[in-house]
């Protein structure tokens, strides 16, 4: 029974997290000490908060009950499944912690808009996804090392759609920055969001290269193929797609400073929709995994 509750909690990370924070803050709002005893509602909220904190801790411990099943469904063989399951757990956990921290920091920088925590969430997910790929060699130090002499090309690991999106976003961001600098105070508000978008693109591109050239010893053919797929997953779903989503939102924030004409409003909405689409494409759903592994 307990295991089922814990697994259910691990499958609903984000709704649980939001509920936990609301519940934790609840007693401070509801508690009204009266002369006749404890406020029942506050006690119930405190107990609920404790339960939710426990379930939140389950998520922070990296539990992912479905990773093995997802890996077995999409992997071509059992060896690949073991590798994919490890990557899925690691990437999902890092993205969750990164996104949570990003949302919290976004609240701190909020200036009355709900967009700040969302922007922080996207930035945090991208950062967490990138951090998951920064791991140093774990094996015993040896004097003898081996390697494959096969060249690894960026195009084998990054989809053309993502590559084009990064280039278009970079160009749009630079245009916004030029407009901000040349047209004066009314447009200056678009400079920093555009800069943030550009930084996200640059960071994603640099991380893609780092993942492609990350150390790989000599491997059997099937393990090498599995590693290629894992690097492809890492370089697309892991951090590139969340970074694209974040950059699109930043472009929309920059564009919003141009006023609230119909054209600007439609463009801002379109950028938000694209950002949501790219974020959804970065999630570890079976459809997304099959699309990348099959390609």
């Amino acid at each position: 029974m307990m295991k089922r509750i814990i697994d259910a909690a691990a499958r609903r990370r984000w709704p649980l997290t939001v509920l936990a924070f609301i519940t934790i803050l609840g007693p401070f709002v509801v508690a009204r000490p009266d002369g006749e005893g404890t406020n029942i509602a506050a006690v119930v909220l405190v107990l609920a908060a404790i339960a939710l904190i426990f379930l939140l801790a389950v998520n922070l411990s990296g539990r992912d009950p479905d990773a093995d099943a997802r890996a077995l469904e999409v992997a071509p063989d059992s060896l690949s499944a073991v590798l994919f399951a490890r990557w899925m757990r690691r990437s999902k956990h890092f993205r969750f912690v990164g996104g949570l921290c990003g949302a919290i920091l976004g609240l701190g920088f909020a200036t009355g808009s709900l967009a700040s925590p969302l922007v922080g969430l996207l930035a945090g997910v991208a950062f967490g996804g990138a951090a998951a790929e920064v791991h140093s060699f774990q094996g015993r130090p040896r004097s003898a090392r081996s390697a494959d002499i096969t060249a690894r090309h960026m195009g084998d690991y990054v989809t053309p759609t993502d590559t084009v999106a990064l280039a278009v976003i970079a160009a749009a961001a630079m245009c916004l920055m030029v407009v901000a600098v040349t047209t004066g105070a009314g447009r200056w508000g678009s400079f920093w969001p555009a800069m943030a978008a550009l930084v996200a693109v640059a960071a994603a591109t640099a991380m893609q290269r780092a993942v492609v050239v990350r150390r790989r010893p000599a491997l059997s053919d099937d393990l090498r193929r599995a590693d290629d797929v894992m690097r492809r997953l890492a370089a697309t779903q892991g951090f590139t797609r969340p970074a694209i989503a974040f950059a699109l939102v930043m472009l929309s924030q920059g564009l919003a400073t141009f006023g609230n004409s119909t054209t600007v409003t439609v463009a801002v909405l379109a950028l938000w929709m694209l950002a949501i689409a790219w974020y959804v494409a970065s999630r570890q759903s079976r459809a997304n995994l099959r699309a990348l592994i099959g390609s």
Binding site: F137, R145, A147, R215, R216
Partner: peptide, 20 residues
């Protein structure tokens, strides 16, 4: 076993792989 025209890894990639 390596044919002419084969592209070798970049210096950076091979250095990473061999920890050199």
């Amino acid at each position: 076993t390596i044919e002419p025209g084969t592209r070798l890894p970049t210096i950076r990639q091979l250095a990473n792989d061999l920890q050199l």
